[in-house]
């Protein structure tokens, strides 16, 4: 009620009056917004090199215009590009289905533990891999599971059949996905744990007084408390869905081959960056950004249709 009457009142004021009224909030927002504009949007102007044959020694002004040439790498329908797009979409799907929910499930699992101590210990162990760089993670996976790694060395010296995991093209997408789960699931739980701790405990008490089972509590109290943040994170992830990891993949590309490992970011690297084509990288960045905007806006709309907040309200 209060909300609605305010909105009406707001519409009656002119923009200047409203801004004057909100001067404290404007002041609050100023430093952060200024920093984003200065260090994000101003350099974004430099992305005009997407339309240039940019050479650092000539400068942005001095480089020749090249029209849409830099975009050709995306729009020329090259089979190598389509292959990269296919792998990217496969990985995006795998990541949405397996990587995204993993920390939510883990947070719920941890949350449902009765022993506070076990919960904390488990959480403190599982977040650790987040701090390893991909170089180390890839090396560790190889040394544990590779053809000459600990597992296979053991199997071989006991005359058992070895397992072909690392460098196996067929398993590569699965391997990438499990590496991400291994590295980041524990870390990603902390946001959900924070959301869980924000849930009003009286709701649980009320539910248990009503004799609700644990399952029903999960469904009627916990999930509604988490839903907002889950949807928010999912929409933000969607905006980034053409990014499926660069360093992790390029470090392992040699072994499995580009047929299964080339994704958009490695494609841009192998076809532009490696030859000093800064314009191509900028062009692909622009296209990815536009795709991201479309996906985020669309997802947000869908969220609104289902009565959710999304990233921003309508």
């Amino acid at each position: 009620m209060l909300q609605r009457s305010k909105t009406r009142q707001q519409q009656q004021l002119s923009l200047g009056q409203r801004l004057l009224r909100d001067k404290v909030l404007l002041l609050f927002a100023l430093p952060g917004t200024a920093l984003i504009v200065a260090f994000h949007y101003v350099p974004l102007l430099g992305n005009v090199i997407a339309f240039k044959d940019y050479q650092p020694f000539l400068g942005i002004g001095g480089s020749d215009w090249s029209g849409w040439e830099n975009f050709a790498v995306i729009f020329n329908g090259d089979p190598a590009f389509l292959r990269a797009l296919k792998n990217t979409l496969i990985l995006t799907c795998l990541q949405s289905i397996f990587v995204f929910p993993a920390p939510i499930l883990l947070a719920l699992l941890l949350n449902s533990l009765f022993s506070e101590r076990i919960k904390r210990i488990a959480q403190s162990i599982l977040y650790l891999p987040h701090f390893m760089s991909w170089v180390i993670v890839v090396a560790l996976f190889q040394q544990m599971l590779g053809g000459g790694g600990l597992l296979n060395n053991y199997l071989r010296s006991h005359d058992l059949a070895t397992l072909d995991i690392i460098g196996n093209s067929e398993l590569f997408h699965v391997l990438l996905t499990s590496q991400i789960i291994w590295k980041d699931t524990g870390w990603a739980t902390i946001l959900f744990l924070a959301a869980l701790s924000q849930i009003d405990s009286q709701l649980y008490e009320a539910a248990s007084v009503d004799g609700a089972s644990r399952m029903r509590q999960l469904w009627h109290v916990t999930m509604p408390g988490l839903r907002g943040i889950i949807i928010l994170l999912f929409i933000l992830r969607l905006g980034d869905s053409l990014t499926v990891g660069f360093e992790q993949i390029i470090l392992q590309q040699q072994a499995v081959g580009r047929d299964v490992s080339e994704v958009l970011d490695t494609y841009v690297y192998n076809n532009g960056v490696i030859g000093g084509a800064w314009g191509v990288a900028a062009a692909v960045g622009l296209v990815k950004g536009i795709v991201g905007v479309v996906l985020v806006l669309a997802a947000n709309k869908v969220a609104h249709i289902f009565g959710e907040q999304g990233v921003y309200s309508r």
Binding site: A80, G167, Q253, A255, G257, N270, N271, I274, G275, A277
Partner: peptide, 24 residues
């Protein structure tokens, strides 16, 4: 060569690796 060498050679290097591993 300075602009495209790395790009076009990369394709052949990838193929070499696949052939050596018996995948192609």
């Amino acid at each position: 060569m300075s602009k495209d060498g790395a790009r076009i050679n990369g394709v052949l290097t990838d193929l070499e690796n696949q052939i050596l591993q018996g995948k192609k």
